[in-house]
Design a protein around this nucleic acid. Structure first.
Length: 394
DNA sequence: TCTGGGGTCCTAGGACCC
DNA sequence: TCTGGGGTCCTAGGACCC
């Protein structure tokens, strides 16, 4: 039998584990990262101690507080997590050039070409795991398989902190109940249940096409697919308000703020957007989006704003309710080098200059006037030096 | 007790063109 | 005169993942 070479690694309860590592008094206590107990929001990560009370990620914070009143609640410190995530991936890349990141705390790594490092792939996997744990200071679960799916399932079984090897993937998957299969969510599960399908083998026998759809997707074929450096396809930002908002001027300010952030990100990554999308969620949780192609690829806040404002207006016309969320997204991204230099617009240069100041003095050192309204309502945390727009005009 | 934020990928219908 | 078939682009929405 062919030797498995795909290793899946997953940092256990990542955000909570970082907080525990930094504050040992939290160890063993139920810890919930994502927001404070009374806030409008959901659990991002729950420590294993908190999970014992039935708290899990995605649960409303207020529900979690009811289930586990003595839990410690923390807002996330995402810059910190992102730095440790960087160490994690740097460590993996020393063992193989074929590393695929799934998220900040999850990766696939193909050890097929790295066998010279160790006589046994199992030992090599254990070494990768141990090394990553040493460098991050966190517990990491690992699973070895022939395909991504096999590796992921093995890792799932190894949690927390173990290393598993799935000997017969096909047999294991055939025996699995559908809700355990990645890619089968609540909707698909519900439909399949209605069709009398409970396990993998029934799905394979009765609905071979669907079976292939589930398994020939992102997890099939080991690591052959998808290995070119992943490129960003979209960026988005959204805000759920502490209280629902009806006032249109204030909603415009929020939109302006989100677009400002997207413009900075586009510039920083050297990308132009081809399309902009606005999202509105009303107080009854009904959610709508509107997208529009930009007249030409751009990274300019001003162009994004011109295209996005009519979209927001049209969304607001759909319901006579206040909003609980507004969001903005850019996609159709293209690298700057792939764009014809057919225009050199003044406000694109201005965006670049503004982004330069933000880069140096912090995002909120310069704000467009439209989003300044927000500062009176929600004072902004400032990083470093404060540079007010007004002081530049002198 | 409500229900975040950041993504990816897929489908379906209409417009438009040949 | 009551009509086709394919291709492609566009937008809206949904399922799913961490």
């Amino acid at each position: 039998m062919k030797t498995p070479s795909v290793l899946h690694l997953d940092i256990d309860a990542f955000f909570a584990a970082v907080e525990e590592a930094l504050d040992p008094t939290l160890r063993g206590r139920p810890l919930i990262v994502g927001g404070l107990a009374h806030e409008r929001g959901v659990v991002c990560t729950a420590s294993y101690a908190a999970r014992r009370y039935g708290v899990h990620s995605g649960m409303a914070l207020r529900t979690a507080a009811r289930k586990c009143p003595h839990a410690v609640f923390r807002r996330g410190r995402y810059h910190l997590y992102s730095r440790i995530s960087g160490q994690f991936f740097a460590c993996l890349r020393r063992f193989s050039p074929r590393v695929e990141d799934v998220s900040v705390d999850e990766a696939y790594i193909d050890l097929g070409g790295s066998r010279y490092l160790s006589p046994s792939v199992y030992e090599l996997a254990a070494r990768v795991q141990a090394e990553a744990e040493r460098e991050t200071g966190l517990k990491i679960s690992a699973g070895l398989g022939h395909t991504r799916l096999g590796a992921k399932l093995a890792c799932e079984a190894a949690k927390p902190g173990g290393l598993f090897w799935l000997h017969d993937e096909a047999e294991f998957i055939a025996g699995l109940t559908l809700d355990k299969i990645p890619g089968v969510g609540p909707q698909t599960h519900f439909v399949l249940q209605g069709l009398g399908v409970r396990r993998g083998r029934e799905l394979k026998a009765k609905y071979p096409t669907l079976w292939r759809r589930v398994f020939a997707g992102q997890y099939a074929g080991g690591m052959e697919r998808g290995l070119p450096e992943p490129v960003s396809r979209s960026f988005s930002r959204e805000t759920t308000f502490p209280n629902d908002i009806r006032e249109e001027g204030l909603l415009h300010s929020h939109l302006a703020y989100l677009l400002d952030r997207l413009a900075v990100q586009l510039l920083r990554d050297g990308l132009y957007a081809g399309r902009v999308e606005v999202k509105a969620r009303f107080s009854d949780f009904s959610t709508f989006t509107r997208r529009a192609a930009l007249p030409f690829p751009t990274f300019s806040y001003f162009h994004l704003w011109q295209a996005a404002l009519p979209l927001l207006r049209s969304l607001l016309a759909r319901r006579d309710l206040p909003l609980r969320l507004v969001g903005a997204k850019v996609d159709g991204l293209q690298a700057r080098r792939d764009i014809l230099p057919f225009f050199s617009l003044r406000d694109e240069r201005m965006t670049a200059a503004i982004a330069g100041v933000k880069e140096r003095f912090g995002f909120s050192s310069l704000r467009n006037a439209r989003s300044m309204l927000l500062e009176e309502l929600y004072p902004v945390e400032r990083e470093g030096m404060v540079l007010k727009t007004a002081s530049l005009t002198k």
